[in-house]
Design a protein around this nucleic acid. Structure first.
Lengths: 151, 151
DNA sequence: TGTATTATCTATTATGTCGATAGGATAAAT
DNA sequence: ATTTATCCTATCGACATAATAGATAATACA
């Protein structure tokens, strides 16, 4: 299961991606609109800034803003940065590989073979889905249900 | 990441699936061969028994044995039973669906749309991979590396 | 019947992570 | 200088994880 932290992170990013002029958005306003505890959100945004995804400005007219194009920010990067590796086993992680302590022969580990497939499938999706993809899907869905409503 | 418990469970199941005559295997022998803390393994096997996958016999000549055909035991079932839902979000879980507390409109949640795809991809793999599939892949891999050795 | 053998049950422990909060330090604008 | 905001460090309680301990119940066999 994804942690709250990761979910908040993605929600915040999508909200910031929807901001028209890349104007800085206040933490408090973001927290309020997205229903995220403010103090918790502070830490999350700080992380996202450290990852190079967000920029910030202090003082009046300050806040957080997207530093990259929404199409450039992939969910895979965000999840890895906040949550940790996508893989379900360390020994199949690309970014955080680590040998299993007790594994006698990694080549012959059945779990590893299967969960490598799982990881590949997961990263294939998350590394090819950007913030704009997510927004586009939501918008399409919104349009669809709006159409349904008018029948 | 998968918990140790789940990893131990799958390893134990594969070991039991390799047992030729479905003879009961001692917890202690299983624990030793698979490098699993014995007392911990006890609890795991108990769970697998409750799930109907294993049977057991007490006393002399007792132990645990597979109750189903290795081809019938899917990794998806095992992971769900020990670890919990495959989905990364409750709101896309088939077996443990639960609405997100704060979500204003589930239909229009971008996360949900993406992580439903991830769940589908994951369960497509794990629900179609049985213990015999895992064994077969390992055996094939063993043969391959054995061949390499003899060149 | 008795005894060794083995799984079963219940409780407990240590350690760590998660979600969240608190309070002050720092930087920018006016 | 003062206000406005992010930035930083520390801390909290609740829960999960990985493992251990010890007593109980069932079975085989002599």
């Amino acid at each position: 299961m994804l942690s709250m932290k990761t979910r908040y992170a993605i929600k915040a990013l999508i909200a910031l991606a929807r901001e028209p002029n890349r104007d800085p958005v206040l933490i408090s306003s973001l927290a309020e609109h997205e229903n995220i505890p403010k103090k918790f959100l502070e830490l999350i945004l700080l992380d996202l800034k450290a990852m190079g995804i967000l920029g910030s400005r202090k003082g009046k007219h300050g806040g957080y803003f997207l530093r990259l194009e929404p199409g450039q920010v992939k969910l895979g990067q965000v999840v890895r940065g906040i949550e940790g590796p996508l893989a379900l086993l360390q020994c199949v992680s690309q970014t955080q590989y680590e040998r299993c302590a007790d594994c006698p022969d990694e080549k012959l580990c059945g779990l590893r073979l299967v969960f490598k497939d799982v990881r590949d499938a997961t990263s294939k999706i998350l590394d090819n889905t950007s913030l704009s993809d997510v927004m586009a899907r939501v918008d399409r869905e919104a349009q669809r249900s709006d159409l349904m409503f008018h029948i």
